[in-house]
């Protein structure tokens, strides 16, 4: 009987401790996220090259893709892969289209893949504007160190089945996204690194409309 009560007390103490710790972290995290939002509000446009490495158990070496992305606040996006598979996703005013290279030209992918990308791109736009903790599908936490790392974990069990977590590393100077790691399971993850980042440089609007 006594042992049972101890167990209950232990569990209660752990839960209470956990709740207090979480609450304290939440206050700190909220402050950090607010700071990031203020920093990111200064970013009106952004463009960068990126290198994407896909790691899987089936691959002996990562599958490397390279491309370029453009962002114009609040919702214009172009995510373009040059190698090994040419494809472009453009998004403007909440309309997302995906193009693939076929028969020597870029043709629109009407299979429905772009709709899935729209959800992802909305998140990426959110990250660029510092809204890391605004997507109800993910719980966001922040770790300050040499770099600031945001960790997003799926709030719903359904999503946890295919994404374990997302780690976003921010540049210490500019608070722009430096790298993104999308972890699907213990053996499978995608790491995207951004290079040659330029912010607040005018981008031709055609970039978000034309695909050739």
């Amino acid at each position: 009987m006594l042992k049972k009560n101890y167990v209950r007390l232990f569990v209660f103490a752990c839960l209470l401790g956990g709740l207090l710790l979480t609450a304290q972290n939440a206050v700190t995290a909220d402050t950090h996220f607010e700071k990031l939002r203020l920093e990111s509000a200064k970013i009106k446009t952004m463009q960068a090259d990126f290198t994407q490495k896909k790691f899987m158990k089936i691959l002996s070496r990562p599958l490397v893709s390279e491309g370029r992305f453009y962002y114009d606040a609040p919702d214009s996006f172009r995510w373009e892969y040059m190698t090994p598979l040419r494809s472009v996703v453009i998004s403007r005013s909440n309309k997302t289209r995906r193009f693939i290279y076929s028969d020597g030209k870029m043709v629109e992918d009407k299979s429905g893949g772009a709709q899935g990308m729209q959800i992802v791109l909305n998140d990426v736009s959110g990250w660029i504007s510092g809204r890391f903790d605004q997507n109800p599908s993910f719980n966001a936490s922040i770790t300050e160190g040499v770099n600031t790392t945001i960790t997003l974990t799926p709030a719903e069990k359904n999503m946890a089945g295919f994404i374990q977590k997302i780690e976003i590393v921010l540049s210490p100077k500019t608070a722009t996204v430096q790298s993104v790691k999308i972890i699907e399971d213990a053996n499978t993850f995608t790491h995207i690194e951004f290079h040659n980042v330029q912010t607040n440089k005018i981008i031709n609007p055609a970039v978000f409309q034309d695909v050739r």
Binding site: S65, S87, T190
Partner: peptide
């Protein structure tokens, strides 16, 4: 395995 260009398995 089949993955998208964006890396999703």
């Amino acid at each position: 395995a089949i993955i998208t260009a964006e890396g999703m398995t």
